[in-house]
Design a protein around this nucleic acid. Structure first.
Lengths: 234, 234
DNA sequence: CCAAAAGTGTTTTCTCTACACCCATGT
DNA sequence: ACATGGGTGTAGAGAAAACACTTTTGG
């Protein structure tokens, strides 16, 4: 330990996770929230978070928190922003790094969910959140809207096999507006990143809709060659 | 102070600043670096940084560090990313939030600069940097490239009055490629955000080039009405 | 009068947008 | 046979790209 550092103060460091899920039936973007089980603000709605520990990086702390809450590792996850206002947490000074994660809403083990007091809440009808968590959510949403235009992150919110209708519904839920069906299909299919399966989804229509899969290997290869994903349509 | 927090560890928190400047003569993007005056890694090149103190937010810490180094307040400044790997600083565990700032290279008081051991170094020829500072610089550059396409941040790197040639040179320095002169001018002028002055810059040519000013008030007004800055050209 | 940098328009290509009908199937 | 949601193409408008010559003026 170097002397010169030690005249400086130390701080609690937290990680808070904004976990988005997409409800394929209700066609709604949702957020995984928990009822806080400890003071301050016990019983209030909050993002799931936790304190960074000695021997873990920020990313590892975020992964740990996500795993504890969902039972899933290898989620799509990204650092969003670090919140460091002096009085943001009334309990004590805590600096918090927010991460956002994307998850298929049905991947979630409902037993683990119960145990943690976690609930999916629709984005369009969020309860009041503690501290600056609402600000975190707003920033995450803005980031998601921007990111889904130019990165293939939407597929993280859908099952492995999905229909073009479902994919379009997802984009409409995030953009909060209607998209032209033909233009949307033309554009996504022209990238040659979706592989048509041989089976159809048959729950929602008589005709049935073809399943597709996102080809991640191909995407990575194209990206190396200067390709840029882009899905901005009318 | 709440008991339940106190079982968690505390950490040193630093802020590191990636300070970009643009050299209008050499047509090069530069970075303000310092020779580190304390251990560990004393004498090595580094970003300017410092530790967060008890009664300041992260933003305030960044402003303080920028002010101490440049003598300027109200710089364009933005939080970039937080680096939290366990061993990123060999002296002790330190979590660092990186900020990037944009500054006109001639705004800098050279006396303050001397005193701090600060030097402008060309982006295309950077010395080796300590710790993960190179990673920070790379991320900041990527962010700058993306940001300058869709936000009018380039003007932060130029004097109040600038010529279209200078503005284009700046974009070419950041994009690292040539831009078509006519298309560039057409696009920037069509936004009606630049105001032609009545005087010309006469150092670099016999004919002289008209000075322009960026109208920030107008930009903000347009933005409120759904306008989006965009300067992506061939 | 000439060298050096500033300034200026038009045509072509491509991308984005708007738009309406047929298809497949279960009941 | 019909109701329901899935699937398909084209024409017009607007934006982006390519491209070369004229202007100014100090020396």
């Amino acid at each position: 330990m170097i002397k010169i550092y030690s005249k400086n103060p130390k701080f609690y460091l937290a990680v808070d996770c904004i976990i988005f899920g997409y409800d394929i039936i209700e066609k709604e973007l949702k957020l995984l929230l928990i009822k806080r089980s400890f003071e301050p603000a016990k019983g209030k709605w909050s993002l799931s978070g936790g304190f960074v520990q000695e021997e873990e990086s920020l990313d590892e702390a975020a992964s740990r928190i996500l795993f504890n809450l969902t039972g899933l590792s290898d989620l799509y996850m990204e650092q969003l922003y670090t919140y460091g206002d002096v009085n943001r947490d009334p309990g004590s000074r805590v600096i918090s790094t927010a991460y956002f994660a994307l998850i298929g809403i049905n991947e979630l083990d409902s037993e683990i969910q119960e145990r943690n007091g976690a609930h999916w809440r629709s984005i369009s009808n969020l309860p009041e959140l503690i501290f600056d968590h609402r600000e975190m959510v707003d920033r995450a949403l803005t980031e998601l809207i921007n990111r889904i235009k130019v990165h293939p992150v939407g597929f993280e919110l859908l099952p492995d096999k999905f229909t073009l209708v479902q994919l379009q519904n997802l984009y409409e839920a995030i953009y909060q507006r209607k998209i032209d069906k033909r233009n949307f299909r033309k554009k996504i299919l022209s990238m040659n990143l979706l592989e048509k399966q041989t089976d159809k989804e048959r729950e929602t229509s008589r005709k049935g809709a073809w399943y597709f899969r996102f080809n991640e290997v191909k995407y990575k290869e194209l990206t190396r060659n200067g390709f840029f994903f882009n899905l901005t349509v009318s």
